[in-house]
């Protein structure tokens, strides 16, 4: 059973107790949960808790989903509500700013839910692009992205390259990333007119 299996097949197998079908659902929708959580700016520990609550709750609600197609919406809504609860329970809900022209918290929440899926898709494309890079360049980018940051001296030592070449190699790696088939596919799909510098 793979991530391309139709949702209805996976949901009905999971309802019958098939752990593998459940695992496949998790693999498919974990990025969506993560994107909604990030949209609410939860800390790592709270985000982990919310994620686990959403999956635990889904286990108990698999049987009441009338339509398997409703699953992504259910996951999005449940995650969003759980984020709001945790933010409020921690007293970290920011007051609604009257200068926010977006129409208050509800409007912002809808926006978060809608953009979550797009963010998850964008992440998948970027990670696919990263996987296309030669190992040495990928390692450099990953080291430069570490949080907290790794000092250039340390990067130089670990990768065996001079400090002075880190910047130029980063630029070449990013350039190469743009030319991967993953990112070229994205550019062709969504921003074809931008090719050649026309705006």
């Amino acid at each position: 059973m793979t991530v391309t299996e139709p949702l209805s097949t996976l949901v009905s197998a999971a309802r019958k107790g098939d752990q593998h079908a459940w695992d496949t659902l998790v693999d498919r929708f974990l990025p969506l949960v993560g994107a909604v959580v990030r949209g609410h700016r939860l800390g790592a520990a709270d985000g982990d808790d919310v994620s686990q609550t959403v999956w635990l709750r889904l286990v108990e609600h698999l049987d009441d989903l009338r339509e398997p197609a409703a699953l992504p919406g259910w996951i999005r809504t449940t995650t969003r509500h759980e984020c709001l609860r945790v933010l409020a329970a921690r007293g970290r809900m920011r007051p609604t700013d009257p200068q926010d022209e977006a129409g208050g918290l509800d409007a912002v929440e809808e926006d978060v839910a809608e953009t979550a899926l797009l963010a998850a898709e964008r992440h998948a494309v970027l990670l696919a692009a990263l996987a296309e890079l030669p190992e040495a360049r990928r390692d450099l980018l990953l080291l430069l992205l570490e949080d907290p940051p790794v000092a250039y001296e340390e990067i130089s030592r670990r990768l065996g390259i001079p400090i002075g070449s880190i910047g130029p190699t980063r630029a070449r790696a990013l350039d190469q990333l743009r030319r991967t088939s993953a990112l070229r596919g994205l550019a062709a799909g969504d921003a074809a007119p931008a090719e050649g510098g026309a705006r």
Partner: peptide, 30 residues
């Protein structure tokens, strides 16, 4: 591009950290 890549890598790290717990949730099915 670097910032977008950073977001994607951080998202993957979050997913990886949460995946095992999400899969184990199935054992709570009652």
């Amino acid at each position: 591009l670097f910032a977008a890549l950073g977001e994607a890598v951080a998202a993957r790290a979050d997913d990886d950290r949460r995946r095992a717990a999400a899969k184990a949730a199935f054992t709570w099915r009652t």
